[in-house]
């Protein structure tokens, strides 16, 4: 089975599933424009390889390994979209299919350079989706640029599954892993007690993409969507209602 095929499937499942929810075979078939029968066939193969867990009735979810690969490819895809749109000035409508072609051949090194070159974008141009965090152990973008000057090898690799606070549900808790953003905003968040390693719980999520309210260090903080999507946490205890 060609790598590119695997990547397309994983990315489709990743895009379709929100907060780790299972995805149905029909949804995948529609997204990839492939007959459902062939999709079922392919999903079995992916499950054998350990990328997904798949059952007829519960649908498909990504395993940790699958999630990692999917995030990687989604990141490359979305970075490429930004590059095509922002730098090469290609139409929004055209960047998606072009990026789909290119994402499979982009090396990790090129991905890192692209991210730096684009000054660490947050979202892609066509549908405003979040660009997944890069998997380097660095807590802000300013740091990434600096580290590059000193040699990137020094930075270790993330292995946990990271989620932006804006993607957490009410009642979910996590430990802060890193914050994306400029020096000023990072310092401000640190000063409010959002330091790496600090435990946070989401108390309230305002409707329609509004701010979130966090419990951190025995106090409550409200964070607008713009900031909460820049703070990435390792989920500790999933859904405790």
């Amino acid at each position: 089975m060609p790598r590119r095929n695997i990547e397309d499937y994983l990315k489709a499942i990743y895009d379709l599933s929100k907060n780790g929810q299972a995805v149905s075979t029909t949804e995948i078939a529609q997204a990839l424009r492939i007959a459902p029968a062939s999709v079922t066939e392919m999903l079995k193969k992916l499950a054998n390889k350990g990328y997904i867990t798949h059952s007829l009735y519960h649908g498909t979810t990504l395993t940790n390994e699958g999630q990692r690969l999917a995030e990687k490819i989604a990141r490359k895809h979305r970075l490429l979209e930004r590059f095509l749109h922002d730098v090469l000035r290609i139409d929004k409508e055209k960047v998606h299919s072009q990026a789909c072609e290119m994402e499979h051949s982009l090396s990790d090194e090129a991905e890192e350079s692209l991210c730096r070159f684009l000054k660490h974008p947050d979202r892609c141009p066509d549908d405003g989706k979040m660009i997944p965090p890069c998997n380097l152990q660095i807590e802000s973008c300013a740091k990434c640029i600096q580290l590059h000057e000193e040699g990137l090898e020094e930075a270790g690799k993330h292995n946990q599954k990271l989620v932006a606070i804006s993607n957490l549900k009410e009642g979910q808790c996590g430990k802060i892993a890193f914050i994306r953003g400029g020096r000023n905003i990072v310092q401000r968040l640190l000063d409010m007690g959002l330091t790496p390693g600090a435990k946070i719980c989401v108390v309230r999520v305002a409707p329609l993409g509004g701010p979130v309210e966090l419990a951190v260090r025995n106090s409550k903080l409200a964070l607008g969507k713009g900031v909460s999507s820049k703070i990435f946490v390792e989920i500790e205890s999933p859904t405790a209602d």
Partner: peptide, 25 residues
């Protein structure tokens, strides 16, 4: 500061702020 960053894998201001918060905690 760069040495501290290498040691901790976090920016120096992050390390110091975290430690200060830990002390407060």
């Amino acid at each position: 500061a760069a040495e501290i960053e290498k040691l901790h894998g976090h920016g120096c201001s992050t390390v110091i702020t975290s430690e200060r918060y830990e002390a407060a905690g």
